[in-house]
Design a protein around this nucleic acid. Sequence first.
DNA 1: CATGAATGAGCCTTCATTCAT
DNA 2: CATGAATGAAGGCTCATTCAT
Lengths: 210, 210, 210, 210
Amino acid sequence: MKKTLGGSATRVRKRPVDKFEDRRMQLADAALVTLAEQGYARTGLRDIAERSDFTHGTLHYYFHDKAELITYCVRRYKNRCIARYDSLVQDGETAQDVLEAFSGAVVSTMIEDARMQRLWYDIRSQAMFEHVLAADVAALDRDIEDMIFRVVLRYAELSGREPSLNPALTYALFDGLFLHAVMNHLAGKASESEVRSGIEYLLGSVTRPV
Amino acid sequence: MKKTLGGSATRVRKRPVDKFEDRRMQLADAALVTLAEQGYARTGLRDIAERSDFTHGTLHYYFHDKAELITYCVRRYKNRCIARYDSLVQDGETAQDVLEAFSGAVVSTMIEDARMQRLWYDIRSQAMFEHVLAADVAALDRDIEDMIFRVVLRYAELSGREPSLNPALTYALFDGLFLHAVMNHLAGKASESEVRSGIEYLLGSVTRPV
Amino acid sequence: MKKTLGGSATRVRKRPVDKFEDRRMQLADAALVTLAEQGYARTGLRDIAERSDFTHGTLHYYFHDKAELITYCVRRYKNRCIARYDSLVQDGETAQDVLEAFSGAVVSTMIEDARMQRLWYDIRSQAMFEHVLAADVAALDRDIEDMIFRVVLRYAELSGREPSLNPALTYALFDGLFLHAVMNHLAGKASESEVRSGIEYLLGSVTRPV
Amino acid sequence: MKKTLGGSATRVRKRPVDKFEDRRMQLADAALVTLAEQGYARTGLRDIAERSDFTHGTLHYYFHDKAELITYCVRRYKNRCIARYDSLVQDGETAQDVLEAFSGAVVSTMIEDARMQRLWYDIRSQAMFEHVLAADVAALDRDIEDMIFRVVLRYAELSGREPSLNPALTYALFDGLFLHAVMNHLAGKASESEVRSGIEYLLGSVTRPV
DNA sequence: CATGAATGAGCCTTCATTCAT
DNA sequence: CATGAATGAAGGCTCATTCAT
C-alpha cells in the first residue's frame, strides 16, 4: 500500500507481508541445502533448522507443516530453474545458439545442481504416494513441460522446422535424458559429451522440417 | 536349477538353503504388496509383517535389515519384469509382432503394475541418497537397459535396421516414456494410445535403415 | 466508583486503571468462549487470541501467564452466575417463588450454560493438581457455597422452616445435583423435569420445620 | 485352551494372552501412581514410563495410545473400588453394619485414596471435552451409580425401608458428598465426622419407611 | 525356526513465554 | 500499547533393531 509513496527513495522498511515472505525464502534456501544433501524422507525439520540461523520452532512459525515447507522449497528451486532456462534460450538468435545454450545449461545443471535435481526426482516420486504433495508437484511438472516445449519451439522456429511431437511426449523424452544424466553423474560416470550429443539428437528428433 | 533331481526318490525335504531362499521369496512377495501400496519411506516392517503370514521378528531372521529386504523385493519384481519382456519379444517373428508385443506389454505394465512401477521409481530415487541401495539399484538399472536394448536390436533386425543410439541413451529415452506413462496413469490421465504411438515413434527413432 | 465525577465536564478518558481493567474483561470474555468450547488443557493462548480482536502477545501484556488468565476468566463467569442467582432468588416473595426461580435458573444454566459449567468443573478438577489454581478456585467455591446457602435460608424463611444441614454439606448435595445435571445434558439425556423435582426434593430435605 | 489340562498342577507358564494382559495391568498400576500424582493433562507417557520398570516405547507396545492407557487405568481403579464397596456392604447383616461399613469405606477412600479419586474426577471432567473418553467414562459412571444404589437398597432392606429416589438422583447426591469430601481433604480441612454424619443423613434421606 | 517383548532414537507438532520494535 | 518474531521444552507417536525364549 504505502509503497510507491511520492518520490521518497528512503522507504527503509519493507511491508510486513514482505518481511514474512522474505524470511520464508531465506528459510527455504537454507532448507534446500539440507534437503538436497539428505533427501526428503531422511531430512527432519531439526536437521534443516540446525543448518539454518533459526530453531526448528521457527520453521513451524513460517510453515504450517513439513509438506508445506517442502513444496515451497521445491517450487522455489524449480521456478528458478525454469526462469534460467527461459532466459538462456530466449537470448539465442540462431538455432545453434539455442542448442548450445540449452545443452550447456543441461550439462551445468547435471554437474552443479545434481544434488538439487535428485531432490526434485525424489519429491516427484514421493508425490506418487503422498496425496498432499501430488497437486503441487503435478503443477510444477506441467510448468517444466511448458518450458521444455518453449525451447523446442524456439529451436524449431530458428531452424525452419516444427515440433513433431506433442508437449507431453516431448517432455517425457527430455526428462528421461535429464534423469539419466543426473543419475550417471552421481554414480561417477562422467558423460558431458554424451549428454550434449543426446540433446542435439533429441532436438532434431522431436522436430521436423516444415 | 532342479539340482538334486536324478533318480533319488526319497528327497523329502528341499535342501536347507532352498528352504531359506523359498521363505525369503515368500516374504518378499508379501512385502511387495505393501510396499507398492505405501512406498519405501512410509512402509514399516510392521506393516509388511502384518500383511504376511509371519511376524515382525521373522523378517529380521530372513533379512538382515530393511534395506536388504527392500532391495531383494525390488530385484525380484524387476527380474520378473525383465523375463516377461524378454519372452514376449523373443516370441515375435516380425517387426510388427515385436512392436505390438512390446507396446502392449508397456501399456499393461502401466495399467496393472502402476503401483509396482512407482515403487521402482521410488527406490531408484532413494538410491540417489542412500549408499546401501546404490549398487543394487544400479545393477538392476543396467539389466533393464540391456533388456531394452535387446528389444531394440530384435526390432531392428526384423525390420532391416540397426540401432542408432547407444544402449544407455536408448534406455534413457524409453525410461522417460515409461515413467511419464506411469505418472500420467496414476494421475488419472488415461493415455494408452499416446503411449503406443510414443513407443512406435521411439522404436523408429532409435534405429535407422542399415 | 465513578470517582472523578463532580462538575468536571472534560473527563474524556477513563482513568488508566479502568482502561486496563476494561481490556482484561474484554479479553476474558473472548477467552471464555474458546475455553468453554475446548477446556483448559486443550486451549492454547493462540486459540484464544485468534478468536479475539487481539494477538497472542497482547494476552501476555494483560495477564502474567495462562493461569492468571484462566482464573480471571472463571472468576468472572462465576461471579456473574452468583449475582444472577442472588437477584433471582431475592426477588421471590413466597417459598414457591423461590423454588421456581431457583429451579428455573438451574435448568437454564444446565441447558444454555452447559459448556461454561463444564469449564468450571474442569478448572476445579485441575485445581486439585495445580497449586497456582487452588486458592482462587477454593475462594470461588466458598462464594458459591454461600450463595447456595442464601437460597436455602431464603426458602426456609419464607416457608417457616430452617436449614437442617450446615452450608458445606448443603452445597455438596446441590453441587452433586448440578454436576450430574450438566453431565447428563451434555450426554444428550434431557432431564429438565428430573432436575426440577430433584431440587424441590432437596430444598425440602435440607430444611426442616422450625 | 490348554489351560485346565487334566489334573496337572504344574502349568508353569500362563497362556500368552494372559501374559500380555498381566503386563498391561502391571503397567496400568504403575501409571496410576503417576497419574494420581500429576493428573491427566500434566502427565506424559514419559513420566509414567520413568516411574515404571519400562521405557516409554513399551507403553506404546501395550497400549495403542494415551487415551487407551488412561481409560484402562481408570477402569481398573474404579472396578477395584466398586468390588471393594460391594463386598464390604454385602457382608453387613444389619442396617447399622451397612451404614458403618459404607461410611467407613468412604472415609478411608477420602483419606487414603484422595489422590486416586481426584484422578477420577479429573478424567470425568476431561471426558466432557474429549470424545474418545466419553463412552468409557460414562459406562464407569453408570457402574458406580449401580453400586451406590445397591448399597442403598441393601441398607433399606435391612432397615425395613425402601428407596425414595431413583438411582440417578441418589447417585448424584452421594457423588456430591464424595467429591466435596475429597476436595476438603485435599485442601487440608479434615472432616471425617462430617462425612460420616453426611452419609448417615443421606442414607436416611434417600430412603423412606415402607 | 520363529516369536514377540522391549528398546531408544527420532519425528512432527504444539505451546507458553520472552522480547525487540 | 500492542505486535509478532523467535524460542526451546515437551508431547504423542513410529519404527528399525535386538534378544531371550
